[in-house]
């Protein structure tokens, strides 16, 4: 099992994840973390929650590939990617990306790179719950543009 990737229904603790990235890791001076949460609004509609579906097996393979590319492009130390699946409510954490490096530039860049490619390549799909019922989210063209910039 790849220790760098976790697909889970349960919540995660930012403090615990940072502690794991720091533990016995005196060579890295920088830690960059990103946490994504469920918003209460999208396209002008009130959102009450999300259901996240994924393609088990491909998800892990796709994330491992993205992490490996990041490691070849930047001088980074540890990486952790967590993505939750199942039913999520407003304000809940969805995704975590943590990267360590000796100096801040590599961790900043690699973290954003991993997140941008997760958005367009990792097989997750969000279904929103609104007052009008449930609907699958459409992919955003801006996410493709962001990933292409790398």
């Amino acid at each position: 099992m790849n220790q760098e990737i976790s697909i889970q229904t349960s919540d995660f603790s930012l403090a615990d994840e940072v502690a794991l990235l720091e533990q016995d890791n005196p060579i890295d001076g920088a830690i960059v973390t990103f946490t994504g949460r469920v918003r209460n609004n999208n396209n002008g509609m009130d959102v009450s929650g999300l259901t996240l579906e994924h393609y088990s097996g491909m998800t892990e393979k796709s994330l491992a590939k993205i992490i490996n590319i990041a490691k070849t492009r930047w001088n980074i130390g540890r990486v952790k990617v967590i993505h939750r699946i199942g039913e999520l409510n407003i304000g809940e954490q969805i995704v975590f990306v943590g990267v360590t490096s000796k100096h801040r530039h590599d961790a900043f860049a690699a973290n954003e790179f991993i997140m941008d490619f997760l958005k367009v390549e990792a097989p997750f799909w969000k279904k929103e719950r609104t007052e009008q019922g449930e609907s699958w989210l459409d992919a955003k063209a801006t996410d493709d543009t962001k990933a292409q910039k790398w």
Partner: peptide
């Protein structure tokens, strides 16, 4: 083989 719509995770 899998078929699916554009992905929307993150």
């Amino acid at each position: 083989v899998a078929f699916f719509p554009p992905v929307t995770g993150g």
